[in-house]
Design a protein around this nucleic acid. Structure first.
Lengths: 336, 336
DNA sequence: GCAATTTGCTTCATCGATTGCGCAACATTG
DNA sequence: CAATGTTGCGCAATCGATGAAGCAAATTGC
């Protein structure tokens, strides 16, 4: 219609409705009854707004208001169900609580994490949730300098409240499951190998502790070479296992579904001995139950984690000690 | 430090640096050389800004500027690799082109899709990409009323340029692969069953056409009951297959990885006859290659699709005919 | 019938950043 | 030394929405 594609503003609507911009504004933001605007005018304005395809300019609105209602979240990757579910549920919960969620994916890149965090703060986010951040304390420091609350999810930080899985306990349970199944099905009692993750990463360290603790409880010693923290990459896990030929029984504790991809690739290419392999994985995938050799997976409790995180929003004196959320262990039948 | 946790503004910095807000502004947004601010003052301001943990108020900045640089995207779910990859790559590409990406996940809910689209426009998004939207034309209509460009991805719409996979050809290729493998390995020549998706959905319709066309080429007739478009749900697919016992050879064309979950569940619970089942899936998952009975998957080319979509941004006379992007067929060895 | 109240709006300053315009102070030219 | 040019910066209007304050008209109270 118009030659200029300028966005409609309340001033345009005001002219069309023969009213003042402030009346239009109060009609559109729902405060019109409080401000004693007649129903008649309100309806007229709403009708015109609809006709014109009006959408508030949030920039202008937020500039004037005190609250932005934006909660930001950074997430490393969408290549596994865990972070995907976190992002999805975060958005749902945030909307239900009247927030506007903005999620951004930072590719496990510390620089990008920090840039994205700054960007979200520039958008006046009231709270920033750093999920699985490589350097959460750097982000927390920047947030606190800007007077913005920050919360760590999945990986803990020292300078902000953290909600994380109880990695130690779940890893111990998973180790127990794999060892038990190796005994029952292969008549063999370990030690298992630990595949994937980074030792510098808190979660990997905690899981390795649980893994070791269960071995210790059974008086099984684990050779150093059995700990293969190959990072978060399928290829590296497959390469690390490459030379391993299971002429004897073999058990694997797989840390993350991305490493599981590599393990399964290795497994499927075995010439022989596959029936002597058992593994379990920390993290869940719907296809996991159907992978041969997989005895079980750990599912982290995203709903509870996010509930706890949302409870922390606005809480000035939140605990600095990480809040631990129990995981669910899902045992599978082995597919022969 | 301060008792009030007010965000630092250029006015605060101006006072600290003993300069004017406009000088501070131009230093911070990089126009200071053009505005002939001395290097000395610029460095002083930058130092103070850093000390104070200053972050621009994008709301104010965008209000004043003409461009927002925001590109919005709505995505249905993060429960499969396809949409996860789309979201990730979209963010990377958008940043590389100097945009600020905002992605939001709308749970396949038409109302939420529309609300989210409105919200993104309120944030002055310059372009909105609707991915897999249930009702893309409603979104396009609103966008065009607001003078915002909209682009459809994955599912086409009539009122905005669309970039979609060549569903027909890829489905035909996949059907061909499954039928061939059934012949080679089972000595059986179909017809296959079509499992998952919604017939009302453009992609499902196009894939079904490709499926039918390949059957027609081979003079195989497909009974109506063999088309089981059970929607995007693992349970419904599993239930639909529930009564099917493969006493004879059985071949399945699985439409979407979410339906594949149900198929694999059914498959793994078969008492007998599993060796007589072959299936293939439209959409890719890294664990797919390791699922027994799976002869191949179709991987949609996210990178090319997004490249095409980005080419459309800012293009006023973009074609209204959908742009078709070829898919990659990934054949697998069957795991016995 | 006149003051007091209520109704239904408008006016205007404001949020923080941006930018065209302009003005001193200093340097250069002839 | 006056005219002209350059450097370095400040002033003030502006973007669109908001809400406190205010004001005229309509209604009520006595």
């Amino acid at each position: 219609m118009e030659k200029v594609t300028k966005r409609t503003t309340i001033y345009d609507l005001a002219e069309l409705a023969d009213a003042s911009p402030s009346a239009v504004s109060s009609v559109l933001n729902g405060t019109w009854e409080k401000r004693r605007i007649s129903k008649k005018l309100a309806e007229r304005v709403l009708k015109i707004a609809e006709e014109q395809g009006y959408a508030v300019n949030v920039q202008a609105s937020l500039l004037r208001r005190e609250r932005s209602n934006i909660v930001g979240m950074i997430v490393p990757k969408y290549d596994n169900r865990y972070f995907g579910e976190i992002a999805e549920q975060f958005e749902v919960m945030a909307r239900a609580k009247g927030f506007f969620p903005v999620v951004t994916c930072t590719q496990r890149d510390p620089e990008l994490e920090f840039e994205a965090a700054k960007e979200l703060i520039s958008y006046q986010a009231e709270c920033l949730i750093s999920t699985g951040a490589t350097d959460p304390d750097r982000i927390s420091a920047f947030c606190s300098a800007s007077g913005v609350q920050s919360i760590n999810l999945d990986l803990p930080g020292k300078d902000a409240p953290s909600v994380i899985s109880d990695n130690y306990s779940a890893a111990k349970e998973l180790t127990k499951l794999i060892l038990n199944r190796c005994e029952e099905e292969l008549g063999w009692s370990g030690p298992l190998r630990f595949v994937g993750g980074r030792l510098a990463d808190h979660n990997t360290a905690a899981r390795l502790e649980g893994f070791m603790s269960e071995h210790r409880d059974r008086s099984i010693s684990v050779p150093d070479s059995y700990v293969m923290a190959t990072g978060y990459s399928a290829e590296k896990a497959a390469i690390a296992l490459g030379s391993l030929t299971p002429d004897r029984p073999t058990g694997l504790f797989v840390n993350s579904t991305i490493s599981l991809e590599g393990v399964v690739k290795w497994y499927s290419e075995l010439q022989s001995g596959a029936e002597k392999v058992r593994y379990g994985c920390f993290d869940w995938d719907p296809f996991g139950a159907f992978l041969p050799g997989n005895v079980g997976m750990v599912e982290q409790d995203v709903t509870i984690m996010l509930n706890k995180a949302f409870e922390l929003i606005g809480d000035a004196d939140a605990p600095t000690e990480p809040i631990l959320v129990p995981c669910r262990l899902r045992p599978f039948h082995v597919i022969a």
